[in-house]
C-alpha cells in the first residue's frame, strides 16, 4: 500500500476531488512530521504512538574497518503499536 491507495480511499469515501484528496493525505503526514520534529509525540488511538527518544553519545565501530568511532547524540523515532491494532492483527 502506498499514498496512492490512501488518496483513492479518501476520494471514494469523502467525496473530494482527486487533487483535494492528494492534498489532504499529504497534509495529514506533514502535520504528523511537524509534531514529531518539535519533539511532540503523536498518539493515534486504535493505531499506535510515535515517540521521540533521545540517544546519548556512544562509541561504536565501523563494521568495515574495525575503527572505533564516536556515534553522536541523536533523537530517534519509535513506534509502539496500540493493543487494539495488535488484537485485530491476530483476530
Amino acid at each position: 500500500m502506498t499514498k496512492a491507495n490512501l488518496i483513492d480511499a479518501i476520494y471514494e469515501k469523502v467525496g473530494l476531488s482527486k487533487k483535494e484528496s492528494t492534498q489532504i493525505v499529504e497534509l495529514i503526514f506533514e502535520l504528523m512530521r511537524k509534531s514529531l520534529e518539535t519533539n511532540q509525540k503523536v498518539k493515534i488511538s486504535g493505531f499506535g504512538n510515535f515517540n521521540i527518544r533521545g540517544k546519548n553519545i556512544r562509541r561504536g565501530r565501523n563494521p568495515q574497518t574495525g575503527n572505533e568511532i564516536k556515534i553522536s547524540a541523536r533523537s530517534v523515532l519509535t513506534f509502539k503499536a496500540s493493543p487494539v491494532l495488535k488484537k485485530v492483527l491476530n483476530g
Partner: peptide
C-alpha cells in the same frame, strides 16, 4: 472522516499482511 479513513485503510492493509510505504514518512 478523512483521518479515520486513512488509518482504517492502513489497518486493513496490515490485516491483509500487506506492507505500507509512505514516502517521506516511513
Amino acid at each position: 472522516i478523512a483521518v479515520n479513513t486513512v488509518f482504517d485503510a492502513m489497518i486493513n492493509a496490515l490485516i491483509k499482511g500487506e506492507g505500507i510505504e509512505i514516502r517521506g514518512f516511513g
